[in-house]
Design a protein around this nucleic acid. Structure first.
Lengths: 195, 195
DNA sequence: GCGTTCATGTAACCTGTTACATGATTCT
DNA sequence: AGAATCATGTAACAGGTTACATGAACGC
């Protein structure tokens, strides 16, 4: 329902080629709705078919030609209409939490290794969002405000993960686990083998 | 890559029918990886085909028969193997943040309405996670610890959204916006109309 | 000579959603 | 009488990923 609008938002800033949109998705709106170039080209075609964008080919010497897409009035209207409808809050969907949930049947050492990796990568992303955020500090436009607020969600998210990973590493340390009641070593559980 | 494992985790607790798994997904593991019943039945079939689970039909009087799936040793091994590989941190993917990012071309009144709705629904979810979490307070098993930690991620997530929505509503109030530099009323922007 | 960036797209596949289809029992 | 719960599934579609395919220019 929505990669369509993420692209329209990207085009609403300025006209872009498929390549541009894909690049853009690695840096800004894409933080909150990512897509690969193959999907971008497909969706741009649909936008054109539905009259929400128009394309024009720009010849370039040396490089391949660019096909630049511009949002139409109809596209802007679609954006407005979409923003008046309620959106569904995003759902958490994370492999790692599934593993935690099934902790009795998974490798705890692997879990700890994953936690350490995560701690790092959430730190990296936090820094990335923070840098983008800081660059907007002095801008006072509406667009800046929107970008700031969106980035703040990202910063909060990453910060919470960082905190949580640290705490989880402690609570899942060998020491902490050895103190638990009813510790069941991996492999000692009864296995159902119904035919 | 992973609804498969979410189902295996569910089956690793105890054997379940497709119906059970789908119900389960509305309450526990499903907080972190949801699926509809149609998908569950399809995936269960695949698990059986790959020898990760076995099924047996249980006759019931009055109600339709249940087809109960039990995880196999091979299934438990797959779970272990999976937990030793690194998982990708979840990406934020939210319509609402896309709207915020494109704030110049969307309806701010609609955005505010959405924020108010969100504030409510994140509060509801927070309460849901917190209730589940509290029910585990006195359990001291490894499984309880895993469930607690997973629920804490959910609680942090919802709490941050609640905070952020409140702040965003202030920063996006008519009053706050009127003080911004370069305010561009909707509709007054130049529109690109390249053919 | 090799890798990267620019630039386009297609094809096959996997994942996930919506809607269709059936039928008995129990609760209001 | 009507809705909800139990219980199974299929079919069609939409959304998203991976891999394939091509080709020139530029820096190392």
């Amino acid at each position: 329902m929505s990669i369509k609008f993420a692209i329209l938002v990207a085009l609403s800033e300025n006209p872009k080629s498929g390549y541009d949109v894909a690049k853009h998705f690695d840096q800004s709106v894409g933080f909150f709705w990512h897509a690969r170039h193959s999907q971008v080209y497909r969706e741009l075609g649909k936008l054109r078919d539905n009259g929400l964008a128009v394309s024009e080919e720009i010849e370039q010497s040396g490089k391949p030609n660019r096909i630049v897409f511009t949002i139409t009035d109809s596209g802007r209207e679609a954006l407005l209409k979409w923003s008046r409808e309620p959106t569904e809050p995003m759902e958490i969907k994370d492999d790692f939490l599934v593993q935690l949930y099934g902790i009795e049947n998974i490798d705890i050492q692997g879990l700890r290794a994953n936690l350490t990796l995560r701690l790092e990568s959430h730190g990296d992303r936090h820094a990335q969002y923070a840098a983008k955020h800081q660059a907007l500090e002095n801008g006072g436009t509406l667009a800046d405000l929107g970008h700031q607020l969106a980035l703040e969600v990202g910063m909060r998210w990453e910060r919470e993960w960082e905190d949580w990973c640290t705490i989880a590493l402690e609570r899942l340390s060998a020491k902490a686990i050895s103190k638990l009641a009813n510790v069941v070593p991996i492999g000692s559980k009864t296995r159902g083998n119904a035919a």
